[in-house]
Amino acid sequence: MDLPGHLGSMPMHAITEIHGESGLLERFRLEIERFDPPARRRLTAALELAAALHRDDRRVREPYLNHLLRVAIRMMHHYQVRDVDVIVAGLLHDTVEDHPAELAGDLPAGADLRRAALAALADRFGARVARLVAAVTNPEYDPDRDRNTQYREHVAANLEREPWARVIKVSDFTDNGVGIIHTVGPKVLSSAVKYRPLVPVLRDLVARADTPLAEPVKQHIYDQLDLAEERFSAILDAPSDN
């Protein structure tokens, strides 16, 4: 497939709509050209693992890998992240939650599947990558409590102690929140309900002095959080037809 020379400057959802997964893969390759060969090999290995684990997963209208690519590209391009561990963790941030058995391999009965999956990630990409993935992996929820409340509590607690995990979560949230206009069906409402209360939590975490992002990048993120809030409000606060 021939891709345009200006692919490197196109908005990611525009790339997704026009060129699909192949366009995002090419954009990813353009971004990692800025890294040295060992870093490129690690990033490519993480992408290959994410693609294999999520090969049958879908995200509403698209392959799930598209979401992971956008999370990683956003960190490299918009957030100016050059920390390879963080980008690797961004590509793999849903693997332990969604595919722990495939990561962990054969285990004895009664083994902790998520712990084994994180150990497998640590063996392959290092303990820091596994720790970052753990920080953004949703917990097993208490069925007697509201899931969205537990999700918000989990995000606030885990990101409190992992500044780089905040960067991954903000990119993930932006793809889900600002990108809600690309969602269809019942997920539109459920996503708005889930994510709107997270906006002030993330805004506070990004503003902290130990969040390792430049001030212009933080301002860009604040603008994206504002845009997400506007989109959630348009969905949740729209006048009822009744």
Rank of each mutant, 00 (worst) to 15 (best):
D175H: 03
A14P: 04
R145S: 05
G185R: 15
G185W: 14
F173V: 04
R40P: 04
L24W: 03
D123H: 11
R166S: 14
D123S: 14
Q219E: 13
E26I: 08
L225D: 00
N158A: 12
F28C: 00
K187Q: 15
Y64A: 14
A165L: 08
R231T: 01
A127N: 07
A109N: 13
R152N: 09
P216Q: 06
A120L: 06
D94Y: 01
D85L: 13
V96G: 06
K187A: 15
D146W: 02
L225G: 04
P11Y: 01
A116E: 12
E140M: 11
Y64I: 01
T174P: 00
R27H: 12
V96W: 10
V129T: 09
H77I: 03
R70N: 10
E62C: 10
E17G: 12
R147T: 02
L3T: 11
L25K: 05
D36Y: 07
T16S: 13
I221H: 04
R59I: 04
N242L: 13
D144C: 00
P197C: 09
R166Y: 06
R161F: 09
D146T: 02
R34W: 05
A72K: 01
L103M: 13
D94W: 00
G105T: 02
L49G: 01
S191V: 07
R115G: 10
R152T: 04
R203D: 12
N176C: 10
Y79Q: 11
A14E: 14
M76K: 03
A214I: 00
L202V: 09
L3N: 09
D85G: 08
P38F: 09
R114D: 13
E48L: 07
K169H: 14
E17W: 12
E102K: 15
H67A: 14
A50W: 00
E17T: 12
V199H: 02
L205S: 08
N148T: 04
H99F: 03
I73G: 01
L113E: 15
L25W: 02
F232H: 02
H54T: 10
P37M: 10
D175C: 11
F173Y: 13
E160W: 11
P37E: 13
E17A: 15
T211A: 13
Q80T: 08
R34T: 12
A122C: 04
A117S: 08
P100S: 13
G177F: 07
E31C: 10
G177V: 05
V129A: 09
A111G: 07
H182T: 02
V217G: 05
G105V: 09
V86K: 08
A134V: 01
H93Q: 06
V136G: 07
P11T: 06
M75E: 08
V71I: 05
E140G: 11
L30S: 03
A156Q: 10
D2T: 14
L65H: 06
